[in-house]
Design a protein around this nucleic acid. Structure first.
Length: 569
DNA sequence: CGCTAGTACTCAA
DNA sequence: GTACTAGCG
């Protein structure tokens, strides 16, 4: 999605060119972006679990192009979905399911044209597909990393470390994350467009763009709508920039908007706080030291509530898990062994034959299966959509409570809880004036390491309307607490959730409590969804005992998940 | 003038 | 998921 309207407004500084310009350099590849586009060519196959190599070939083609220009690609894959984004994911999944049903309806009616259109909407990029690409990358000796969570901060982190010299992606959010050199609109002929952060000063269509701090740009993105916030209705990128320049702090902006009669979402302040955390401190992986890190370091003296941070920026599981995850060995969400889609389907095919009288070619697969720790189940059992899986792997460091599948009444309760204070909204409780020990880095740019080192800051005082020190002093602050325990974390894939009462403490941490309640509400939405359906093909891979897939996609000696049949129905 | 929302397209034998 | 554009305030 990205920040809508940002790229068109940066037209003046978009440098058209070709990949030739990047000869000898290494570029981070937003792999899911490429995959998403290639999905179109095989949407039907993907939806119907039919083997295909079209999406793999389109990636290989792009790799050839990069290598033709002497560019070294560094592929970055998306990892686990952030808990706070489960709401969006839920909506998308529902829409895909609907499209898929619609597609099959059209198929039955013989309307293949409309059916394919729906298949296009229904197809999604799965981790198993990503694994297919990783297998190819292994063969080609091309480096890649699976982000612990989102690819965007991971790519910016690689750029920050100097591991890559730029980022190839269509996502304008990268600029909000702090990307310095964004290469977009790559065509098959190698032409592309570069957006350089250092050129922000030259943008005239957005006055004084160069003098906005990273924090202010985040606020602009959050006001106009980005991946983490829906934004305020009627406020696009232009108005957002103007508002931030004029008022600088959210409280004033909110008041101004409200006086104009603009409707501001009830939980907007939570969205903003969460987005602010996710933009700055999302979990990333250091590929050289093989360690889990954060995009930017936490401020030296901070009182961030780490529970909240874990929800917004991703969890800190044990490093071993992340080593496996970020090297593509396990499914980022379920942590089950990751098998490439095509290998899964090849095995699935031979497995299905075991149901028939003459399973001559299924011996290897059966043998393989017998020494795996997959529970023996009949295919009928596996088709049953109502049995939630018990996953055997352990997840240290996080305490899980038993889950309750019937959550809808509770959701309503939480809904009431979070919307019970309409009047105070954003204006009162959102930002609390800085307490003596509060580290203002949450919302001031003091934590913006990349920006402080930026030459942009030097020559910003030439214009009349720049943000003055006074404005910054007048900035808002976000208060957080370390000790308030409102709830506990649910597990990774959001398929389980615990019940725990939201404690409305009478302490000064009321804000945090509400914040958590809000997050929890979103979390629960997703869990309810997950509990009521198992149509998540990419999340239900059963671990195999076989070695990690290093061969080409043609090798067929691994067990697979027969439950994918369930998805077909 | 800017914003929104609807539509079209993403690949490729 | 993005690009483009007609039509709205």
């Amino acid at each position: 999605m990205g920040v809508t309207g940002l790229l068109p407004n940066l037209k003046e500084i978009q440098q058209a060119g070709t990949l030739e310009r990047y000869r000898g350099t290494t570029l981070a590849i937003d792999t899911y972006g490429w995959l998403h586009r290639s999905v179109v060519s095989c949407a039907h196959e993907l939806c119907m679990d039919i083997p295909t190599k079209k999406y793999i070939n389109s990636i290989l083609k792009k790799i050839e192009m990069l290598q033709h220009f002497g560019v070294t690609p560094y592929f970055v894959f998306d990892g686990a979905s952030l808990p706070t984004k489960s709401e969006t994911n839920l909506e998308r999944k529902l829409k895909r399911q609907q499209a898929r049903q619609q597609a099959e309806t059209y198929m039955k009616q013989g309307n293949s044209k409309l059916a394919f259109k729906e298949f296009m909407k229904a197809a999604s990029v799965t981790h198993a597909m990503a694994k297919s690409i990783m297998v190819e990358l292994d063969n080609l000796g091309i480096k890649y990393v699976v982000a612990p969570y989102e690819a965007d901060p991971q790519m910016v982190y690689l750029e920050k470390l100097g591991i890559v010299d730029g980022i190839l992606s269509e996502d304008s959010d990268l600029l909000v994350f702090g990307c310095r050199r964004l290469i977009t609109k790559l065509k098959d002929d190698g032409t592309c467009v570069e957006i350089n952060r250092d050129d922000f000063v030259k943008v005239r269509s957005i006055p004084y763009l160069g003098s906005y701090t990273a924090e202010q740009i985040r606020l602009v993105a959050m006001l106009s709508g980005c991946d983490y916030t829906k934004g305020v209705g009627g406020i696009g990128i232009k108005s957002a920039f103007t508002l931030v320049r004029k008022y600088n702090n959210l409280q004033k902006i909110t008041l101004a908007l409200q006086s104009e009669g603009k409707q501001i979402p009830q939980d907007f302040k939570y969205q903003i706080d969460c987005a602010n955390l996710a933009f700055q401190y999302q979990k990333v992986f250091h590929p050289e030291s093989q360690k889990l890190m954060t995009l930017n370091e936490y401020p030296e003296r901070h009182d961030l509530d780490m529970e909240v941070v874990e929800l917004c920026c991703g969890k800190s599981l044990d490093n071993e898990t992340y080593i496996r995850l970020c090297n593509g060995e396990i499914n980022p969400n379920t942590h089950e062994l990751l098998v490439s889609r095509e290998q899964s389907l090849a095995s699935l095919k031979s497995n299905s034959m075991t149901l028939k009288p003459a399973p001559s070619d299924a011996v290897a697969t059966t043998a393989n299966r017998s020494r795996s720790d997959i529970p023996k189940r009949s295919i009928i059992d596996m088709l049953s959509p109502t049995t939630p899986e018990k996953r055997p792997f352990k997840r240290p460091n996080v305490v899980y409570k038993t889950h309750d599948m019937k959550l809808s009444p509770t959701i309503k309760k939480i809904h009431k809880l979070t919307s019970s204070s309409p009047a105070e909204g954003i204006s009162s409780k959102f930002f609390i004036k800085s307490t003596p020990e509060f580290d203002s880095s949450m919302l001031s740019d003091s934590s913006e390491v990349p920006d402080n080192s930026s030459p942009l800051k030097v020559n910003t005082a030439t214009e009349e309307d720049v943000v003055t020190d006074e404005d910054i002093k007048d900035n808002e602050y976000y208060e957080s607490s370390i000790n308030s325990k409102g709830f506990e974390l649910s597990d990774d894939d959001g398929e389980e959730i615990e019940e725990s009462p939201v404690k409305t403490t009478t302490t000064t941490e009321e804000y945090v409590t509400r914040f958590k309640a809000s997050l929890r509400e979103r979390f629960m939405c997703d869990s309810t969804y997950a509990a009521s359906t198992i149509l998540k093909p990419h999340d239900i891979n059963v671990p195999t005992k076989g070695p990690p897939v290093k061969a080409t996609t043609t090798s067929t000696t691994t067990t697979i998940d027969i439950r994918q049949f369930a998805f077909k129905r």
